[in-house]
Design a protein around this nucleic acid. Structure first.
Lengths: 217, 217, 217, 217
DNA sequence: AATGAATGAGGATTCATTCAT
DNA sequence: GATGAATGAATCCTCATTCAT
């Protein structure tokens, strides 16, 4: 009895290899070899190599989007700042749990292909909608200062993706192991400082009332 | 008379194509076609495809490092904050002027190859040294708060690289054209806010005396 | 139904083409075309072109060596002269039956490559051992005169290989068809004369008692 | 001042490389590099690569043929046996003095190309004519036994070419250095034994009167 | 006489994919 | 479901050759 299905085993191999060597740099034969199965199975389960790519990217982004959506929904019952922090914590967690896919998707998304453009439309437009809503609400409720929202999103996304786009830089230059618990923890806190000190309005009162939020939501 | 040398023309084509389709996704034939020359010239000038890659990445990172080095040297005559801002402005400029290469190098650097690992050692270790020196000086001189330096570097690098790692996201989702003058300008200012409000110490005096720095040094 | 396996068909084509045009002068495309199959199959079955070469040469020399070994073993039960004649007959036969490979291997062996040097060590050292043993035994038993063995081996190998190293010379200059039965027969007899008159001791008795040996052993 | 002309330097490089790696296995760039000159010079002096081949082979065979012709001419004033021995000694000498070319030409001549076929007609037909004349005269004058001439030529050519077709075999298996003076000497003597004992008639008188011939003619 | 840049054809190899089993 | 054999297209690279200088 094989513990995991062949489909899942292919997914895992592909995630690892795409991550390490890139999509174009990985051959289906390598994936098959790592999966310890025949090449033809990849076509069998995913149609072709591109289908495998699409599957990986889509399922990853679906989960990713769900995180942000959840934070967005909380806007009804929590402050914008809390929602933003929820999103940040959630994303950091999700990325840590899917580190191979995270790096791979973040890299692949920088390419200019039809597939990527479609994904932009499907997922990232929604992501932007949620982030924008959170920021707009914060500004309206005078919790956030009058930041230009797109630039804030850029900064946020830049900071969030950094550890996964440069894992080797982190380990070999900064000597930080990006997958260790306390690293994620601390890096999250640093980003939160950016939220508190750069995004939020700087009344002393605001700073005094910064409340911690639970890690898992 | 050809206005530019064939070597330079190959470089330009390669930068554009590597940028758009990735290194592995680009064929030497495409490069030759775009350069309007014979495939063999690529081997002639760069040995092989990988030689071309190395040339592009190395020359890009050399220029990149020079920017940061210049800011580092200014530590003798300027405040840490000013030096950090100089570095940020310089990098933003350099990236804007080499936008194809910037995106490409930033993406390629995420792969796990021998070449990349060598580059880490050669260039990015130095980059880290300069950044660290600037931050350490700032902390010692009580200009910066007691930030954990590696995490600050991560945030900074994340923010700086973001527009070039997601140009399509910017244009098609955020509707920001990343290469327009005012965009770079404004994004730089937003990152500066992070420096001023999150990195620097929060005495009211410090905030009052934030001085603008000239764009070009 | 294909009568012979693709692997065998590739071997046959390669033997013919390597023979006619040399290893370096033959392209894998030609081999594939002659085999009426796709180029990729050559890599599929033999790894690469060099793997095909190695396969051909090794399997040929294995069979070749077996012939001589058999003659060597007969030293226990026959005279040295008989063993030598057995070897000569056996080699002539083997060469005739593998004429393409024979010519090709004999030519390729004159090159100075790593592969060839390895083959020397593996096969030809053994060949020399067998020949030497036969000659030494003959000399000790006073059947052969005191010939310098290496030179005898040289002469013998020179004569044995000649028809296959110059097939065109034979057909177009000497007008001898080297693959016809009686040609091999007669050439073998001529070489035997060299054994009888130049190698063996010249007592009249010896000459009188020269006994023919059966062609097949 | 360069001591040798570029043309000659190209010839020397080509002879060495063709010898070691074969004609098809050698590139004009390698020849140029070894000659320390530009690739274009090869085309300049010899038209193209094949022209260089033709030049080498032709000039070698011209010299080779001259040797045998000289022996043939001596038929007027000497015995057939002496002439044959003269030819053998002359060829051995010529081959030793042109060892690179010898090996290369002997190997290249085994290929089945137009060029080779033309050379057969031009040179080797003449060679055969001379050998045949010597043997026929010897038989007519009852100096040689009734050998079948083509087979005798084959044996002779086989023995003569052997050391140059297997130089590595000689050095690495037999541990004979084929270019040392005494080796050539002794090998020549061994071939002469074949002439004396296998080719010549076996009257005791004949054997008693075997006269040595001077090495250089 | 000699060169360096440039070319186009062709080299071996590897790729994703398919198909009969 | 799963496989090994087989395919054709495409890969990068190297070849001999030429041309202006």
């Amino acid at each position: 009895m094989k513990s995991t299905s062949m489909k899942q085993r292919i997914i895992d191999s592909a995630a690892f290899l795409f991550n390490t060597k890139g999509y174009d740099g990985t051959t289906v034969r390598e994936i098959a070899k790592r999966t310890n199965c025949n090449v033809a199975n990849i076509s069998y389960y995913f149609g072709n190599k591109e289908g495998l790519l699409e599957y990986l990217v889509s399922s990853y982004l679906e989960g990713y989007l769900a995180i942000i959506e959840r934070a967005y929904i909380e806007l009804d019952s929590r402050s914008s700042r809390e929602c933003l922090l929820l999103a940040i914590r959630g994303i950091m967690n999700y990325q840590k749990e899917n580190r191979h896919l995270t790096r791979f998707v973040l890299r692949e998304i920088t390419l200019d292909t039809t597939l990527i453009r479609e994904i932009m439309t499907t997922y990232l437009t929604k992501e932007k909608y949620y982030f924008q809503a959170i920021f707009e609400t914060g500004i309206k409720q005078q919790e956030f200062s009058h930041i230009p929202i797109p630039y804030a999103i850029m900064q946020l996304k830049g900071m969030l993706s950094m550890p996964y786009l440069h894992p080797q830089y982190m380990s070999e230059v900064l000597h930080i192991m990006p997958y260790e618990m306390y690293v994620t923890e601390q890096y999250s806190r640093e980003i939160e400082k950016w939220v508190n000190y750069t995004i939020c309005v700087h009344t002393q009162k605001a700073i005094d009332t910064f409340t911690p939020i639970p890690v898992n939501i």
